[in-house]
């Protein structure tokens, strides 16, 4: 505990670094995976390609990815960009399939009826399909958020600072308190992110929360 109190400033700084490395991949991953998922949902041939490629991407080992990205991107080996790009690739790999499933899950009746009342294709995507895919997308995003926050730690191995530093340093010094501090820090960030996503869901998708319990009530009611 004394170690924690003595190093509060460093803990806080590394926590901020960790957050700064985690947020862009989650957002970028979402922005890239949603259109990919929609393509996979909409056009049968693209489905196999998108889902296979994204599945393969996820099997690339983290270290290998971080080390090869500077060669591909032309960045310096210590550049945080490498970690962000690498984590974005993982996020897309995880989320593309979920996004395809999310769009598949939109009821065909609703889609047909939105065509029938006169929504054009673009408005239909943004006003009907995307919000209705929302609950599944959100659950996928929560997985991606947790996975990104934990995987970002690996960046420390190539010298990009995050809470992962405490794992390495604690291991080298055989000092469990430091390792534990890192673990707790990562968990706290992951939980905070998750709560934030749930909150966003509550605000943006109020119908998804209301619908289930009262649907049962509604069915019993008389017209």
């Amino acid at each position: 505990m004394t170690w924690v109190l003595a190093n509060l400033e460093q803990i806080w700084r590394l926590t901020l670094d960790h957050v700064a490395l985690s947020v862009p991949p989650i957002i970028l991953g979402f922005l890239i995976a949603v259109p990919l998922g929609w393509l996979a949902h909409r056009y049968r041939p693209s489905r196999g390609i998108v889902l296979t490629v994204s599945g393969l991407l996820y099997t690339i080992p983290g270290i290998a990815l971080f080390l090869s990205l500077p060669v591909v991107l032309g960045t310096r080996i210590l550049d945080p960009i490498n970690v962000i790009v690498g984590m974005t690739i993982y996020a897309v790999a995880l989320l593309a399939r979920t996004a395809a499933d999310a769009f598949d899950a939109v009821s065909n009746d609703v889609r047909q009826s939105s065509v029938a009342v006169g929504y054009g294709p673009i408005r239909r995507f943004f006003v009907v399909e995307l919000p209705l895919a929302g609950p599944v997308l959100l659950s996928g995003l929560r997985v991606v958020s947790a996975s990104t926050v934990s995987l970002v730690s690996i960046g420390s191995l190539i010298g990009v600072s995050s809470l992962g530093y405490f794992f390495l340093n604690g291991l080298n010094r055989r000092f469990p308190t430091e390792i534990l501090t890192g673990i707790v820090g990562v968990i706290v960030i992951a939980v905070v992110f998750d709560l934030f996503l749930v909150l966003i869901g509550r605000v943006l998708l109020p119908w998804a929360r209301d619908a289930r319990p009262s649907a049962r009530r509604g069915r019993r009611a008389v017209a």
């Binding site: 009821s107 009746d109 609703v110 047909q112 009826s113 939105s114 065509v115 029938a116 009342v117 006169g118 929504y119 054009g120 009907v128 919000p131 209705l132 929302g134 998708l205 119908w207 998804a208 619908a211």
Partner: peptide
């Protein structure tokens, strides 16, 4: 799209937007 907007359409299972 314009044509559909001036014709009413009612379907089975209502087709209402659930959100």
């Amino acid at each position: 799209v314009k044509l559909r907007r001036r014709i009413g359409y009612v379907m089975q299972n209502s087709g209402l937007l659930p959100h």
